[in-house]
């Protein structure tokens, strides 16, 4: 095997660099997605058991009107927030040691967040929809407690949108928090939490507004509030990550 080193022509170099960046970005993306789902398998196993128990106990007790399983709908979001912190703490230095750059690291994180958002969000939404379906099929009523999931009209699809966006925002916010702790250390990282948690707060506040009974912001439909709030939160977290990482030294 020969060592692949850059050719001196500009074209060859550009091709080499583009391929290297694709490879590095892809490594971050798929390792993050893989690790999240690998560890996530444990989470899902526990989560499914909890949901089943949550639905079964009242049914066995003879309740005819049930709280929706959606009562624990934020659990996957919290899981992703923690995974964002943990996985990036492990992977960021390794990536630079392996010849990646801060740019490819952040791009990989962004792509991983998108894939995780869609897959985790859809899985979480599907699971909750399934539980409600089973409860209804058994002849019981579902009394939802989470406005965001049952907003009249486009409730089902709104819930899907919220799950996907929340998964992306929470994971990216976790990544941001993890990078800030790595860069600033324990004390300053903790002091920065009000700022680093802001993206998640923005998104969750938007979801709360969209799911509430009161008038929506500027009369906008719920889905638009969820979309805009989620997108702003996500962009804030992604932008913050880049600001923190772009010139971070490797300790």
């Amino acid at each position: 095997m020969t060592t692949t080193t850059p050719d001196r022509t500009a074209t060859a170099r550009a091709t080499f660099v583009a391929a290297a960046e694709r490879r590095a970005t892809s490594a971050v993306t798929w390792n993050l997605v893989g690790a999240t789902w690998w560890i996530g398998a444990w989470f899902w196993a526990i989560y499914v058991a909890v949901l089943a128990l949550q639905a079964a106990v009242p049914l066995l007790g003879g309740d005819t009107e049930l709280r929706s399983a959606a009562g624990s709908f934020t659990a996957p979001w919290i899981f992703l927030f923690v995974m964002g912190i943990v996985l990036l703490a492990q992977m960021s230095r390794l990536h630079l040691v392996a010849g990646g750059t801060r740019r490819t690291l952040v791009h990989g994180e962004w792509r991983a967040a998108a894939i995780i958002a869609v897959t985790f969000g859809a899985a979480g939404w599907l699971l909750l929809a399934l539980v409600d379906l089973v409860v209804r099929a058994l002849g019981h009523d579902v009394r939802p407690v989470d406005g965001i999931l049952v907003t009249s009209g486009s409730g089902t699809w709104l819930a899907l949108l919220a799950h996907v966006l929340a998964s992306g925002v929470l994971f990216t916010t976790g990544v941001l928090v993890g990078h800030v702790y790595r860069r600033l250390g324990g004390w300053r990282g903790t002091l920065a939490l009000p700022l680093t948690l802001l993206p998640a707060a923005v998104a969750l506040a938007a979801f709360e507004v969209a799911g509430g009974d009161g008038p929506l912001v500027l009369g906008a439909p719920a889905w638009l509030v969820v979309l805009i709030g989620g997108a702003i939160g996500w962009l804030l977290a992604a932008w913050g990550t880049w600001l923190v990482v772009r010139d971070a030294p490797v300790e």
């Binding site: 080193t5 992977m91 390794l94 010849g99 490819t104």
Partner: peptide, 20 residues
């Protein structure tokens, strides 16, 4: 932040910098 040189440089420290 240079992909060209980063790809061609490998630093290994005693601490290892492995994926823990």
């Amino acid at each position: 932040e240079n992909t060209w040189t980063a790809t061609g440089t490998q630093l290994v420290r005693e601490s290892g910098d492995h994926w823990e």
